[in-house]
Write a protein that binds this DNA or RNA. Structure first.
Lengths: 236, 236
DNA sequence: GTCTGTGAACGAATTCACAGCT
DNA sequence: AGCTGTGAATTCGTTCACAGAC
């Protein structure tokens, strides 16, 4: 109801996810508001803790986590405090236990099925990327509008025509969509994903997309990352 | 904007970028501290303005930019105000002119040469990615430690052994390095890039890396992006 | 003594609101 | 009228510093 900036939407830059569900009339369940930067750091802590466990470390203090992530130790403790108490005063944190807690907090105890749209270079790379399945993100179907690509397979995943998306997800029930198409096609693809029941979208297209409230969007723009580097380079 | 005589240094938080700015006396007018989120948004504005120009739009108001980026209109005007005055009251912004200003501010009026380390799936995708050269980021050499890959070419770029890095950059003088290797090799690669004269690094390895002051690092972790989506999904 | 968990203090970033220009 | 540019006000996030647990 203000004339100035009424563009409210679920865009997400490298640094901010906007969730429509949160700002409206959300009433209960989450009593404490958790800062978005906290959520992003939680993933970094988890990464660090996984690495510590792989290195055979059994117990770690908040300052060790700080060292491994580049994040302030007090910040780590404060972030964790939004979710509970996981450490032992005088001792620190049990690495395996902390990993389990962080995984659960991030919703990683469940398997996530993913639809990929766009089988170009980036899409192809994502189909080859082992990091996703390692963390429980499984690309269960891939789609493209290019009839040259439809019918072929990449790393064992068959490429279907985009028109098959809704029908296929009626049985697959994937909740996450990855958009790896050009800027021109992005919004249309997003609309199809949402219509097919997808609840969260990772957008690699270099354009801001609109979704209805309740759908979570994150935007990853590789070029933008380069541009930010360029900015800091420029001053030299 | 009124430049006060404050020579406050460009300090950057640990969110995504770790930057140790040398902060010598700067010739340009930028003596005011510019928030890091502002820099990230500048890239989003530029993207939007490019899209507007491609769509034939000649003039745009701050609220139109807001619509195209999902960022508040007042925020846009405030962000721009750190760098100067680029609009016309009562009218808005000339799209072409604004694009030129934003490009210059981001240091995109110069060509940037890039070294890529890691010719696996991700490295290969980056070599195929057209977005980089389109914006003036040219991968001038690629490196890997796998002797199977050394000597082959990807999309016209030859893969060299990592030990050639320093020698080759003595003539290439690239300032930007992209790290697309595994977590175990990342820090070593970063050290080699820095030793070879690289000033800025885009890190795709899922680990925090250390650099000496003056070197800019940005970390992109695709899995982390997915994990954040997972978090917001979990609440449903 | 060591280290966690957290209210309080602080600092940073966003949004408001309006003066002033077109 | 419409819109920019910007101090002021507000909101938000980080860091401090210490009580209390081990």
């Amino acid at each position: 109801m203000r004339p100035d900036g009424k563009s409210k939407k679920n865009e997400v830059g490298e640094a901010n996810v906007v969730m429509h569900a949160a700002t409206g009339g959300e009433s209960e369940s989450t009593l404490v508001k958790i800062p978005q930067p906290t959520i992003e750091r939680m993933s970094a802590y988890l990464q660090c803790v996984r690495n510590l466990r792989l290195d055979g470390v059994v117990t770690a203090s908040s300052s060790q986590i700080a060292e491994g992530t580049g994040i302030n130790a007090a910040q780590f403790r404060k972030d964790l405090s939004y979710f509970g108490e996981f450490g032992t005063p005088g001792l620190g944190y049990d690495v395996a236990e902390l990993e389990a807690h962080l995984s659960r907090i991030m919703g990683l105890d469940a398997r996530h099925d993913v639809l990929l749209v766009g089988a170009g270079n980036l899409g192809s790379a994502l189909l080859h990327y082992s990091g996703f399945p390692q963390r429980g993100f499984h690309i269960v179907a891939a789609f493209d509008s290019d009839s040259e690509k439809v019918g072929t397979s990449i790393n064992g995943t068959r490429i279907h025509h985009i028109d098959e998306l809704a029908r296929m997800n009626a049985t697959l029930n994937a909740q996450v969509g990855v958009v790896a198409v050009t800027r021109a096609g992005a919004q249309e693809v997003v609309d199809k994903l949402v219509a097919a029941g997808v609840q969260a979208i990772l957008n690699f297209a270099p354009v801001s997309i609109l979704v209805r409230p309740g759908i979570v969007v994150r935007h990853v723009d590789l070029t933008s990352q380069m541009e930010v580097l360029s900015y800091y380079l420029r001053a030299k």
